[in-house]
Design a protein around this nucleic acid. Structure first.
Length: 596
RNA sequence: GGUCUCGUAGCUCAGCUGGAUAGAGCAACUGCCUUCUAAGCAGUAGGUCUUUGGUUCGAAUCCAAACGGGAUCACCA
């Protein structure tokens, strides 16, 4: 970073000295030099030909000569067409490297003073988590870590969707068919037990519809008139009236689900600073509607329903309150936005929610803007695509889902199998082995879901289990394990590798240079990932870093090196790679093993 | 139909605010373990960057249109 800035400065000066044109250093973009050419940074001269009145190669030559003389960082240069490739003095690289070694905070932004709230997970309490939720959870957790690394204060929240007709469905089915079954009596995890009754409801409901249709009823009509649907609606009404029996059932079943979720959250390694429950927030928002009516940014229709007109924003009119005065989905969100802001005055509020709700969040933001809320601008919908199966979209009700707990278990099994096949399990206690399998399984899974741009839909094929080779989590983890072995050995041999141990080393090998370039990039990568809310940027970086290191590892021997300074440098380089692999993976919520 | 979004190798995906001959992994094929962990490394092969126009010295990248996939447009959540 500083290196590039220094060179940009010099180029700015050179342009001024040679051609008498003024270009601010911040406007001078350097790009990494392509592998085929000598050099580290490339400056493109085409854009300046008009201003200067000379050809691109001429400019490149003149600039190169000037920089070689005047810029201490520049060792040499070459010009290919309009591309000025600059070779950097090795001492500069090594100076940077020593700086990184002694800066424990390297790559982490200074405290920004900005507050960011990240809402993610936000499950329904009527069914267990599935693969789609995993993408959500990993994204939310990782983005939070990345934002923290950028110096922001982050609050992770989970808005639990614990009320509504869908919850009543599983409650009703349980009452009808449950026979007092409990997680203890059935041996099922609580969320799975409740999910079972949700599916049972749907099955019975469909049969009832078919029956009514067979009796000659219209299908839409049948959907509304099916007996269990009517009963579920009745149950919802009772719940809202505080009916003791219904509320108790609700509490019981919810507690089962929560203990199930807790277990899953622990397993997958995500957590939250605060929980909101929709059962406590669903009445909020009506004051906001009232406020909007007073400010005359909302309007009332003849039947008493309240609307906001967003046609100027390219959206439609949107209902905010029903004619009977009850709230709809968006009403609640208006309320919770205010509640969240009061709890934690944020500069930004991220909602990690699937892209099927893109429209909803546009409306939410536009509506809060109409209300003149100061926090409206900070609202950002971090939208992500569905995870598709080869058979198409996942649907909980139809049972065509990849269950999160099952998937994790399968990954653990695969990890065990692979490790055993490779014979890498010697010297592990059973506990250590178990821990390793879990680390690898979660590494593979998280990396798989996070390396892809969130916006894109992605395909998951359960038949082809997630890979442990190539561009994967375990590949990166493996690199860390390898380095750990080296560091252990260096420790046993008593080899020092602090900056003083390679003080006069200055003979960088090409592959070492590449590793170093990657290390130097880390802060820029963290920043970019933070600006874009993109864990994929980090994942790709971790992969590139690991790849560069593996090449170095293969080509250059460390312990057979007779030059002590060179040997120390290589160990130090390894140690730094391990450190930034670990830090990158931490930003993805992935742990790295010492041995594997 | 309106709006949003995606379209890059057989498959899954990278390609930052436009730059050189478009990159990885998987799958296929070739080499490399008596030397720091082969979950690795090196290599071969695989492309009309959906199409057509535009802007530019220069376009996978920006703009427009078309085509194709997906989402959404409820007094559901």
């Amino acid at each position: 970073m500083q290196l590039q800035n220094a060179i940009s400065q010099s180029i700015s000066q050179a342009l001024n000295a040679l051609f008498e044109i003024t270009v601010d250093a911040s406007q001078i973009a350097l790009q990494p030099t392509r592998k085929e050419f000598a050099g580290s940074f490339t400056f493109v001269t085409f854009p300046y030909t008009k201003q200067v009145g000379k050809g691109p190669e001429q400019i490149g030559q003149a600039l190169g000569e000037y920089l070689k003389q005047h810029a201490k960082e520049v060792k040499n240069f070459n010009v290919v067409k309009g591309f000025l490739n600059l070779e950097v003095e090795e001492q500069e690289w090594l100076r940077l490297f020593r700086g990184i070694m002694t800066d424990a905070n390297y790559g982490h932004g200074e405290p920004s003073g900005r507050n960011v709230m990240v809402e993610y997970s936000s499950p329904n309490t009527n069914k267990p988590l599935h693969l789609g939720h995993l993408r959500n959870n990993f994204l939310g957790y990782s983005v939070s870590e990345i934002l923290k690394a950028n110096g922001h204060k982050v609050m992770k929240v989970n808005l639990v969707n614990d009320r509504g007709i869908h919850i009543c469905k599983s409650m009703l089915a349980y009452e009808k068919l449950g026979n007092g079954e409990t997680p203890e009596s059935s041996g099922m995890k609580g969320d799975h037990l409740v999910g079972k009754y949700y599916v049972l409801f749907d099955k019975a409901y469909k049969e009832q519809i078919d029956e009514l249709v067979a009796q000659g009823m219209d299908k839409e009509e049948a959907k509304k008139k099916a007996p269990w649907m009517l009963e579920a609606q009745d149950m919802l009404l009772k719940w809202e009236q505080g009916d003791e029996h219904v509320v108790n059932l609700w509490k019981t079943m919810n507690s089962w689900v929560y203990s199930g979720f807790d277990q899953t959250y622990r397993t997958i390694g995500v957590d939250f600073d605060k929980f909101y429950y929709e059962s406590e927030t669903y009445t909020l928002g009506k004051e906001r509607v009232e406020e909007g009516l007073q400010k005359e940014v909302f309007f009332k229709k003849d039947n008493g329903s309240v609307w906001v007109d967003l046609t100027d924003e390219g959206l439609d009119e949107k209902l905010l309150l029903r004619a009977d005065g009850t709230s709809v989905y968006i009403t609640q969100d208006l309320g919770t936005a205010e509640l969240k802001y009061n709890d934690f005055p944020y500069d930004q509020s991220l909602y990690v929610v699937a892209d099927e709700q893109n429209y909803h969040f546009q409306v939410l933001k536009a509506t809060l803007k109409k209300l003149g809320k100061p926090y409206a601008d900070g609202i950002y919908h971090l939208s992500y695509g569905m995870v598709d199966l080869p058979s198409g979209k996942m649907k909980s009700r139809e049972g065509t889902v990849v269950d999160a707990d099952e998937l994790v278990q399968e990954m653990v099994d695969t990890a065990r199998q692979q490790t055993e096949e490779l014979g890498k399990i010697e010297g592990f206690t059973p506990e250590q082995a178990k821990e390793l399998y879990h680390t690898l399984a979660m590494g593979a899974l998280k990396y798989f879901l996070l390396k892809v741009d969130p916006k894109k839909r992605m395909l998951f094929n359960p038949q082809e289990s997630i890979d442990f080779r190539g561009n994967t989590g375990p590949f990166v983890q493996y690199t860390h394990a390898r380095i750990s072995a080296i560091l252990r050995k260096a420790g046993e041999m008593g080899i020092k590798y602090d900056p003083a141990a390679f003080e006069s080393f200055d003979n960088l090998h090409e592959v070492e240079q590449e590793v170093l370039t990657q290390l130097v990039n880390f802060p820029a990568v963290v920043k970019e990932a933070g600006n874009l809310y993109a864990p994929s940027v980090i994942a790709n970086y971790a992969y590139e870093l690991a790849k560069a290191y593996n090449r170095f590892y293969q080509e250059i021997s460390i312990f057979n090196e007779t030059d002590e300074q060179a040997r120390s440098f290589r160990i130090a380089l390894s140690a730094m790679v391990a450190r930034f692999v670990r830090e990158s993976m931490k930003l993805l919520g992935i742990e790295v093993p010492e041995r594997m």
